[in-house]
Each structure stands twice: as C-alpha cells, then as structure tokens.
Nucleic acid binder design. Sequence first.
DNA 1: GCTAATCCGACTCCACTGCTAGGGTTTCGA
DNA 2: TCGAAACCCTAGCAGTGGAGTCGGATTAGC
Lengths: 152, 152
Amino acid sequence: MTFSAKTEYGVRLMIELGRHDGGDPLALKAIAEAEGLPLSYLEHVVADLKRAELVTSTRGAHGGYRLAREADEIAMDEVVLALEGHVAPMDCLVTLPTDRVACSHEGDAGRACSTRLLWMRVQGGVLKALHGTTLGELVEFSERHAHEAVVA
Amino acid sequence: MTFSAKTEYGVRLMIELGRHDGGDPLALKAIAEAEGLPLSYLEHVVADLKRAELVTSTRGAHGGYRLAREADEIAMDEVVLALEGHVAPMDCLVTLPTDRVACSHEGDAGRACSTRLLWMRVQGGVLKALHGTTLGELVEFSERHAHEAVVA
DNA sequence: GCTAATCCGACTCCACTGCTAGGGTTTCGA
DNA sequence: TCGAAACCCTAGCAGTGGAGTCGGATTAGC
C-alpha cells in the first residue's frame, strides 16, 4: 500500500516548480540535480504531469517547465491521480465521473464484494487527505523546513 | 496504491469467520470454496492472521479456525496491518510505537522529505478509516447485502 | 548551425506478488 | 490403531509491473 516512486518524484518536482516562482521556466536538469533524481526518468514523470495539464513546457534552449496554475490552486489529488493513474485501495474500485466511488464487482451475486465498505472508506480517507492539501501548502512547508534546517 | 490480493483475501476470510458464528471451528477448505480462493494460498494468509492473534486454530480432523475475539472488537487496522505488514503511503514513513507517524528521512538536511506533510496526512486518513471500521460492521454489511441479493 | 533543452518510444533489469508443491504434524472417529 | 482430515511449514517458480536507461527526434535560442 505505497504510492510508486514515480508519484514521489512527481510531487517533489511540483514542489520544486512551486519554489521557483520566477517568470522563466525551470529546466528538468536543474530539478534532477536539486533533488538527486535520475533525469531520464524524470522525463517520464513530467510527461504525465504535462498530459494532465498541471505543468506547461517551453522547448528549446533556456526552456523548461512552469506550473500551469498557481500553487495554491492545485490540489494534490490531481497531482497524485495524474501520476498514479488511479487512486483506489482495491482494483475493483473505480471513481465514477460523478465523483462517487463504486465497486465494479457490483453485480457478482451480491456476496462478491463484502469488503467493499472497507475499501470505500479507505479510499474516501485518502482522497479527502489529498484533496484537502494544496501544492501551495507543501511549498510553504518545504520552505519553512529548509529555513529551520539552516537555523539548526 | 492498492492493497495486495493477500490483504483482500484475508479480509474476506475474516468476514467469513465472522459470519460463521457457531461454536465449532470453520475449516479453511470451506472458506476457500465459499469465496473461490486458492486453498494453498489461503494457508499463507491465515498464517499471518494467526501470528497477529486475530484467529485461533484447532488442528486435526474437524479442526479449523475461529475469530480470536468478537467481531465487534476487531478493528480493521489490525487486520490490514497483519496482512500488509505495514500501512504507509511512502516507504520513509513509519508508525512509531507511540502511534505517532514519523518520517525516517527526518535527518536528511530538512529538504529531503518535503513531501512528508502530504504522506502523513494520507496515512492519517487511511488509518482513521481502517481503525474506525470493525469486522462486525463488515460482517453485518455482507449479511445485509446477501439478503438483498436474495430478495432481488 | 551549434547547443541546450523538451519530447518520444523501446528496451532492460529486477524485486515482488501470487501461487503451487510437497511434505510434515496433530487430532478425531471408526 | 489406523487413516482421514485438517493445520502447519518451507521452498521454489513464473508473470507482472515498476524503475531506470538509451538513442534519437524535434524545437528554439544564440
């Protein structure tokens, strides 16, 4: 029950973009070096984020990535969802377009998904935690923490 | 971010034990057939549950398994923890004996775990959902649902 | 046109999950 | 007392997917 490393990398990447509030884009290479992550793998990660329209890119020399929106406007469930593909504690759980959670075993003679209640509650807890956290909070948290580290 | 099939099987197994409220133990083979799960694999699953003292066993002919406690007294975080080993959305998160959640990267120059805040919130949500659900609820839920299926 | 950067796809490696196999040990009942 | 029914334990295997690499194509600044 852990998120993939890709998700971890992606979140860090987003935070790094959030910390870099300047107008010019931030190159992936700089992020890779700052976080100590493999550049070639980060390319895949950022591709997911771009596909989900969470970051924008400018190609060519002096290019790089920017947040597509203000950090405060980005809820972390979007980020994690983009990276992880889906967020469900069990394969049979799917998030419907209506934002309701359902179990795809629904038809199996009733008995099949007796565990449904549990997984739905868990998923609810996860989504609530993710949705209730913005990238802005994480950026601020990381900056505060970095400052403490300097002080200490 | 899904729980393993082992955990799913284990939860179903526990529910099945909860449904069988009689005094005599329930054989694993019966559970395997009822749930359509491979018997030889269930043996591994139930071993974990036994190690965590969630079920008791009686060997020999007419043996089987029983819940170690009343279903209402069993919180699902215990069950999932026993099966999954640990419940943390990220590897660096550990649950301390004091029930507090901490990040094992704590020392890494502060910056390392800028994602910490997020994962801790997620883990909190998961644990709360699991802890707030008892096996008794799931048993009742499954019985109610089975009844509906019959009616329908 | 050189260089720095984003893009894109294919490919490898490896750990882990799910599952099987095969043997034990215990206990009940005939 | 024998055998069947159950629990118990260890080893091992095959498939999948995650993590990462590599090579190249494209775009843009200088």
